[in-house]
């Protein structure tokens, strides 16, 4: 079912939905950018269409809705662990096709890997319904088409935002009631981006040859990468976390175990008790990330982790292009071992 709504009608719809759902969308955080007087776009709860930034790509991904940066696992006293309560209200998340496909990557890790489900992720994840934001144009650094993540049918509703009005497609019958008396019926279906300016050739090798791990192509990243971790924090599919226990300052007998996002680029990611760690060079970390995104994960789950949202390239302060790195890798593999010497 399709509908055409004015912005006012859409706000009425959001108002009705808000009675039963927490509604998350990319929103502008004014003057909260890295540089003074610049903005960032990230996810938060919204109530009006005017708050939703549909004209630009969000700086940070919607994974924050199901993977909070900081998440309490347990509260504890000296001898007892207690799980925190979770908000049980269902959520609607406005997001693009690449990000919807990104959630599928997160699901693989948190709900499938090792045959166990992460209960904290699951509780938040199963509350979420997707509202697809149709992409009008491909943004800078997007390469969703190359990753096959430009399309999806995994959404409850699809929305085409426009200055004049908003077209939507409803797929989820549970939401039908909210649309009963709003807007004009039509047969709207969302379009998907068919071509990006950036094209990535993901290597299609069954096994990475040994030599590529130490190939000189990674060396440039030793000095170019500053191990800041922005490529990981803005990525919709990066799922790693670090757990730690904290004690409350006023009473150090009680505290909590929490987890925070971890980054495979940042120092200490592989460090063990006693201080020994792996991948000291930033180039090795780049290789580890790239392989995870377009090779290792695929070997394990039969799907590439990366969805080509391009946020890593949008946000790298050192202008390292991950997408170009994949292309370099592909070329190296084609040239073969000889070229590496």
């Amino acid at each position: 079912m399709g509908k055409s709504l004015s912005h006012n009608e859409f706000n009425v719809l959001l108002g009705a939905l808000a009675k039963d759902y927490n509604i998350y969308a990319p929103a502008r955080f004014e003057k909260q950018g890295r540089f003074s007087d610049t903005d960032i776009i990230r996810y938060r709860q919204v109530s009006q269409v005017e708050e939703i930034v549909w004209q630009a790509k969000s700086t940070y991904s919607p994974k924050e809705v199901v993977m909070p940066v900081t998440q309490t696992l347990f509260y504890f006293t000296q001898t007892e662990y207690r799980e925190p309560e979770t908000d049980t209200r269902p959520c609607l998340v406005f997001l693009r096709a690449c990000d919807i496909n990104g959630f599928a990557s997160l699901d693989k890790i948190y709900l499938e890997n090792g045959g166990t489900e992460d209960i904290y992720y699951k509780r938040l994840r199963e509350k979420v319904k997707f509202i697809l934001i149709e992409c009008h144009t491909s943004f800078d650094n997007c390469f969703c088409v190359s990753m096959g993540a430009n399309t999806t049918d995994n959404y409850s509703m699809a929305v085409r935002f426009g200055e004049e009005n908003i077209q939507l497609e409803l797929k989820d019958e549970q939401l039908a009631g909210y649309l009963d008396n709003i807007g004009q019926g039509n047969d709207f279906k969302p379009q998907f981006i068919q071509e990006n300016k950036i094209k990535v050739n993901v290597p299609s090798v069954a096994e990475m040859p040994d030599w590529i791990y130490n190939d000189q192509m990674w060396k440039q990243y030793d000095h170019r990468c500053i191990a800041c971790g922005r490529c990981n924090t803005t990525c919709v599919t990066c799922s790693c976390y670090t757990a730690l226990d904290v004690l409350y300052d006023d009473n150090c007998q009680v505290g909590e175990r929490r987890r925070v996002w971890a980054s495979c680029h940042i120092d200490g990611f592989t460090d063990m008790a006693g201080g020994h760690g792996f991948r000291k060079e930033n180039g090795a970390r780049m290789r580890f990330k790239v392989f995870h995104k377009i090779y290792d994960f695929n070997k394990r789950f039969g799907k590439h982790m990366c969805v080509g949202c391009g946020r890593c390239d949008d946000n790298c302060p050192e202008y390292i292009s991950y997408s170009n790195c994949i292309n370099i890798l592909n070329d190296r593999l084609k040239e073969g071992e000889k070229a590496s010497v």
Partner: peptide, 16 residues
């Protein structure tokens, strides 16, 4: 660095 023990936290991943 096996941290979560259940394949979620990512710290002990090597290759696939």
């Amino acid at each position: 660095r096996m941290s979560c023990g259940v394949g979620k936290c990512g710290h002990c991943k090597v290759g696939d």
